[in-house]
Design a protein around this nucleic acid. Structure first.
Length: 897
RNA sequence: GGGCGGGUAGCUCAGGUGGCUAGAGCGACAGCCUUACAAGCUGUAGGCCACAGGUUCAAGUCCUGUCCCGCCUACCA
């Protein structure tokens, strides 16, 4: 522990914020100080988030950056609020991808997975993991993530493995997990079954092949045989056909039902059956039935007791059932040959273009082959019912709200989960087979003997589990389940889950189902589903599309905080959020602006030491004002964070810091300094210190650096109570001052009017002007008389100010009307009268328009009768003001010199 | 086929439960190195809030329909 030795001394504060100088230093300091560590038991209220474990194969992409920045934002904010915050980090073993990567490596070395054997191969993967698997977590540190690194977990570590086996055995014993032969989605490239979620239907331009199947023993009335014409997008599958189906009521074909067709190329007789599944309107109305390779045909096959003919190998080539002529060909080569043969033999009627969706494996892009195989499945229906209830009764809440409907729809239509994968890297299925008696044993540990026959020759199932099975246990398995740990007791259910909506079904849904089943309680109360980062064209950013922003490059160019601020601004409810370079650039400028505001304050504090704390009761107007505005910013930011409106939170801090604190307050401070009132700096430092706390969840590094400097021995507020802004208390709203805000608003408007006139009439910069203000209201006059003399010179060059109830418009002067106020600026010798006339005309036209609109509303009796009193009063006030402005402008124009 | 989201300034987007003169960033134009910041300051221009109806005293906001764009879902071979 201990503060970093190296502070940039004030006199050496660079003019430009240099993020590289400080980021690493502070991250190390936080970690060494143990600020990120959560206590298993604590007096403090708990706040927990489990990280969506990134794949060990991954490197930080823009999606990770957004997801984790938002989580860090929440965690840092809650930590400051005094919660016992746990952000559980870790990685996923990413079954299929990792295995592919290592296989590729082996191929380069001229060896292979099968040559190595299972044990050696797994060892190799662990080696790879040790060398490369930690990349992404170290990258998360670069973006400032305040994870509790002492608790880092991995989906294949011993604890998780224990949890996986426990869950599996439990579900097996409950009969929810079972082994069956069924039609599954098969990836020929990965040589494994995948779940239907992993199949991505992609629209492709394909063809409809019309093929004639001769009907056996029936002539068409002439000498020719009768045919059934079928249409298919996959002609090669005809080699596996075991029937042709027509609709039982289809007048064209019903008389064929019960007869047989001669399957071309193979000369096999197959039955013609009637089944209502067939759509008479679609294609030719006659359907070739391939129960071995089509999910629908499989169902038809079951209904009609058809043979199931498998014609593909595990790697997607034709097997012996396809016939010698086709055996060994790839699916695509076979299609070509089949079509050529059909054409040659006169069975091909025509080929028409046809656009349709084809299932692709989402991990490798290979066209999925539906195939019959023996797999492990999980019946998730009973679990889904509980998850459904939790979503409906609000036990788990989705943000944005619209995601609830998506979740419910999916849960209501849930299908059995294909659990087994024909891979080596992953959680091996804890099932043992006895070859002696065919008994099946599910066990936590390797069983020594067969329960049924006592023999010792047991064989473990070869397959591993779908990676989502282990990540589905993540929220509680990382905390020690199935043990009853203090962590679980304290942090489960976790507070919120933050992830992209694209894995709502893959992961979020599974965690909710498994959490309810294993823990009897939802894994999190709230699910915040943020958008996916898109490019300017609205396309999701991804490495394969080559349109992605590289987080680490971005950080190197703009700094982490600038990047984070841009990401916070992407925290809108939109499903796709653009992240243009300009937004990151804006973050960088903002960081520099803050840096310089602090630089100004600190440099002047050094130059003008403040001896005593100023008396708060005698605060000048701008101090009451800035405190009131800060109060407002704190309340708005807090409220926005509470409701996951990151964009609004970031915008609020931005607007306050830049457009209120810098644009107005610091300018006021300059004036105070000029008047020998350095106490103003104390307020500046104090407001900045609080604002650094407000900013910290968004820009942790910059806020820490400046907070440290601001609290180094200048005696401001909370100084040194804590050693780091990341554990300093979240600011509380205090000090609203509506009167000061109102008065300041008038002052600001006067200043803006003077500036506007100077700008529009091209008053030379050096020229000092005289300002005359006319106001019928004695109170306002008093306020203006008290304040204008002080503030105006700081913001615009004036030499003389007059405030009176009635002012004679000086000749050759410019004029501005602000409600009841009239402002004159004599500009003899400088003024361009035509320009001034044009300016007044423009203002007048606008005033007339506004008056008309307000009058129209107020002349409507229904409005007066039905609108709330408050609204009517506001409208009246507004009209009065507009009328006064309009009249004054009209009079000025009528007597214009 | 069903559903969801979007269409607001030249560009990218904000605008919780209807109610001041519809905002920001970037860009444009004009003028400024004013003792923190040119990554800055000041001013200006720019909007039939996709279109058509409807509800309401009042609609960018709610309802209906239409047109575009995107997505999710579905067993039409």
């Amino acid at each position: 522990m201990g503060s970093p030795a190296l502070y940039l001394t004030m006199t050496h504060l660079p003019k430009i914020y240099e993020p590289q100088q400080i980021e690493e230093k502070w991250y190390q300091f936080w970690q060494e100080s143990g600020y990120f560590h959560a206590e298993a038991t604590s007096e403090k209220p708990p706040y927990a988030i489990v990280i969506p474990p990134p794949n060990i194969t991954g490197s930080l992409h823009i999606g990770h950056a957004l997801d984790n920045m938002l989580q860090d934002c929440l965690i840092r904010w809650r930590r400051m609020q005094g919660y016992n915050t746990l952000w559980m980090p870790g990685t996923d073993h990413a079954g299929i991808i990792t295995e592919l990567i290592v296989e590729r490596q082996l191929a380069e070395e001229g060896t292979s997975k099968s040559a190595l054997g299972r044990e050696k191969f797994i060892e190799r993967v662990w080696q790879w993991k040790a060398a490369s698997g930690g990349t992404i977590l170290s990258q998360l540190r670069r973006i400032g993530c305040s994870c509790d690194w002492e608790r880092e977990r991995f989906t294949l570590d011993e604890g998780l493995s224990q949890a996986v086996r426990t869950a599996f055995v439990r579900f097996y014993e409950q009969g929810l997990i079972y082994r069956d032969t069924y039609m599954v989605n098969w990836c020929p490239a990965c040589s494994t079954a995948v779940s239907n979620l992993e199949v991505e239907p992609i629209e492709v331009d394909g063809h409809f092949y019309h093929i004639r199947y001769p009907v056996v023993g029936v002539s068409s009335g002439t000498d020719e045989a009768a045919f059934l014409e079928i249409a298919t997008t996959r002609p090669e599958t005809m080699l596996g056909d075991t029937a042709v189906a027509v609709h039982p009521e289809d007048e064209r074909y019903r008389h064929f039902i019960g007869k047989t067709a001669m399957l071309p190329l193979q000369e096999r007789e197959i039955p013609i059956i009637g089944d209502a599944y067939v759509d008479t309107e679609f294609g030719t109305g006659a359907l070739k039935v391939t129960p071995g390779h089509d999910a629908n045909d499989y169902e038809i096959g079951l209904r009609h007791d058809l043979a199931q003919r498998t014609i593909f190998t595990k790697t997607g080539c034709m097997n012996e059932h396809a016939g010698e002529r086709y055996r060994g060909l790839s699916r695509w080569d076979c299609r070509e040959r089949v079509v050529a043969d059909l054409r040659e033999q006169g069975y091909l009627v025509k080929i028409v273009p046809h656009r349709h969706a084809v299932g692709h494996h989402d991990r490798c892009g290979t066209v999925i082959e539906p195939a019959i195989s023996l797999q492990w499945f999980m019946n998730v229906k009973p679990l889904a019912e509980r998850a459904l209830a939790a979503a409906k009764n609000g036990d788990v809440r989705f943000i944005p709200e619209r995601e609830t409907a998506r979740f419910i729809h999916w849960m209501e239509n849930i299908e059995p989960w294909t659990l087994s994968r024909q891979r080596w890297w992953g959680h091996r299925i804890p099932i043992w087979y006895c070859d002696a008696c065919d008994a099946v044993t599910a066990a936590m540990d390797i069983p020594q003997t067969c329960k049924t026959c006592g023999c010792t020759e047991l064989r473990q199932d070869e397959d591993v589990l779908d990676m989502w099975f282990s990540s589905g246990l993540w929220p509680f398995a990382t905390m020690g389940w199935p043990e009853k740990t203090a962590e679980l007791n304290t942090f489960y259910p976790t507070s919120v889950l933050v992830t992209g909506w694209d894995i709502l079904f893959f992961w979020v849904a599974r965690m909710i189902m498994l959490g309810l089943a294993c823990m009897d309680e939802v894994p999190f109360r709230t699910v915040y589903l943020h958008g996916l980062v898109a490019d300017e064209k609205g396309q999701k950013m991804s490495k394969s599309k080559g349109n992605s922003v590289e987080p680490l490059e971005t950080i190197a160019t703009y700094g982490t905080d600038a990047f984070r601020f841009a990401l916070a601004n992407a925290g809108t409810p939109n499903p796709y959020v653009p992240l243009p370079e300009s937004q990151i650039e804006a973050g960088k400028r903002f960081a520099n602006k803050i840096w310089n505001a602090a630089r100004f304050t600190l440099m002047n504090l050094e130059r003008h030491p403040v001896s005593a704390t100023p008396n708060r009761d005698s605060n000048p107007l701008e101090v009451k004002w800035i405190r009131s505005r800060l109060n407002h910013a704190i309340a708005t930011t807090t409220d926005a964070l509470e409701n996951f409106r990151f964009h609004e939170a970031a915008q609020t801090v931005y607007a306050f810091l830049w457009h209120e604190f810098c644009d107005w307050y610091l300018e006021c401070v300059k004036q105070r300094l000029a008047h020998g009132e350095p106490e103003a700096l104390w307020v500046a430092a104090d407001v900045l210190e609080q604002t650094m706390r407000l900013l910290h969840p968004f820009m942790p590094f910059l806020s820490e650096e400046l907070w440290q400097q601001l609290t180094q021995g200048n005696g401001t507020g909370t100084a040194n109570e804590k050693k780091s802004v990341c554990v300093a208390p979240w600011p509380e709203p205090a000090g609203a001052h509506p009167e000061a805000e109102a008065t300041m608003a008038v002052v600001m408007t006067v200043i803006e009017s003077v500036r506007s006139i100077r700008g529009e009439l091209n008053v030379p910069l050096g020229a000092s002007v005289e300002v005359l203000v006319q106001s019928p209201d004695a109170d306002v006059r008093a306020q203006l008389a008290a304040h204008l003399g002080h503030y105006l010179p700081a913001f615009t060059k004036v030499k003389d100010i007059t405030v009176a109830a009635a002012v004679q418009k000086p000749p050759a002067s410019a004029e501005a009307v602000i409600g009841e106020l009239v402002l004159y600026i004599p500009l003899a010798g400088v003024i361009d009268l035509d320009a001034e006339r044009a300016r007044l005309n423009k203002r007048h036209r606008q005033a007339v328009k506004d008056v008309a609109a307000a009058q129209k509303t107020l002349e409507n009796p229904n409005f007066l009768q039905r609108a709330p009193e408050k609204v009517v009063a506001q409208k009246r006030e507004s009209l009065e003001r507009l009328l006064a402005e309009e009249a004054k402008l009209a009079r000025s124009l009528s007597v214009f010199l």
